[in-house]
Design a protein around this nucleic acid. Structure first.
Lengths: 214, 214
DNA sequence: CGGCCTATTGATATCGCTCAACATACGTGG
DNA sequence: CCACGTATGTTGAGCGATATCAATAGGCCG
């Protein structure tokens, strides 16, 4: 998957390395294949997680089989928290070979209690998650289809690209984008072609986008 | 406002009283009128907050004037966190005389660092917020209008009612419900009448709902 | 080269928004 | 206490955006 080489987390390692030494010492590193579950809905929350490299999606499946993606996690992001004993969503690797640091819940909570720096890191991770989710709510409930796709591209550029970069290699399919934005794949496609025809973006293959006018 | 008397927080005081003593000692209690801002978009995040009684809404205004409500806070809920310096949303009191405990950010962070019980309380508050937001994303992006209203009623019953209670007095207008669910007021109304005609709910005035079949 | 997965385009149906009118409830002042 | 005015809630008709169904194209891997 040459296409997803930008998502191997290499440009995020500095953030990881800023983790307190103790956080690394309790981590178990695991590698996941594309579409492999990191944890599933209803399972016990015995671990917290942090992406080292790659990307994951947090999602739920409706009874009618439709899937809703609530969040995409990228290197440095924490996930897997819950205020109850069971997960409300599932999380899956999106890119092949996604590496995740897994922290036993009891150990990381003890660490957070004893080490303010760790506690702060986790707090900021949860606050960032709250902000992403709020943004997501804003996008899916007030924006039209083309606006959603536009917002997605800009948001993704800000999260994965180096500042000033307007080329981005999407790690996810049109399907994923559709499920994230609450649209059908067809509508996402139409929005992409619309944006291209208007000169707002250019495409080199479906996964490589250049933002011309945001 | 006799109608909103159930939202004076009285049935939530036990949760508040479980707060660590130190948390209460740094709190400043403030009372807000209906529609009064607790904080506004773009303002600095110098405080964290917790509802003592009443209710608040977290929202953003689009450039075209439409409003999106991302979350409703009820007694016991923490809010106002941010991973950056400025708030991304605004928060307003919904019911007259809403009482909010305000914690200076530096003081509460220091307290969280020194007192594991406080840190845990805050952690659980943020985790609960994440779960509400995920649920909200699920509701607004996959459900039809009647399903959203139904989900809203069930969710609200679980949050405000005593267990087993199926009568609920809504603290919010149809407008608020519409902006929360990403619908128009008219569509919300139609969903209510639909549910009533099908015998799923009964209404005694627009704000008092009894859930018959969930 | 063939097969599967992903992406794109087209035609039609449907849900929910918009605009409009009307009804009800609540607060205020006479 | 009643009358009025404003805010809130309800109902109807028509239109538009997006889902759905269907077909085709492109790309990657064995």
């Amino acid at each position: 998957m040459e296409r997803s080489s930008r998502f191997d987390g290499s440009d995020c390692e500095p953030r990881i390395n800023k983790s307190p030494r103790d956080l690394n010492s309790i981590a178990i590193l695991r590698t996941f294949q594309r579409d492999q579950d990191i944890f599933e809905h209803h399972h016990r929350c015995d671990w917290w997680y942090r992406i080292v490299s790659g990307a994951t999606r947090k999602y739920r499946i409706r009874s009618d089989g439709r899937r809703q993606i609530a969040d995409i996690h990228l290197p440095g992001d924490f996930f897997g928290f819950s205020s109850s004993d069971a997960h409300a969503s599932s999380v899956q690797a999106i890119v092949e070979g996604t590496i995740v640091a897994c922290y036993p819940r009891a150990a990381i909570e003890a660490l957070a209690d004893s080490d303010p720096a760790t506690a702060k890191l986790i707090r900021l991770g949860t606050f960032a998650a709250i902000e992403r989710l709020e943004q997501q709510i804003f996008v899916v409930s007030t924006m039209s289809a083309p606006e959603r796709v536009r917002a997605f591209l800009v948001h993704f550029r800000d999260r994965i690209g180096r500042s000033g970069e307007n080329d981005l290699a999407l790690p996810i399919t049109r399907y994923d984008i559709a499920d994230l934005l609450g649209l059908s794949t067809e509508t996402v496609c139409r929005a992409f072609t619309d944006l291209r025809e208007r000169g707002a973006i250019s495409l080199e293959g479906p996964r490589n986008v250049t933002i011309i006018r945001p």
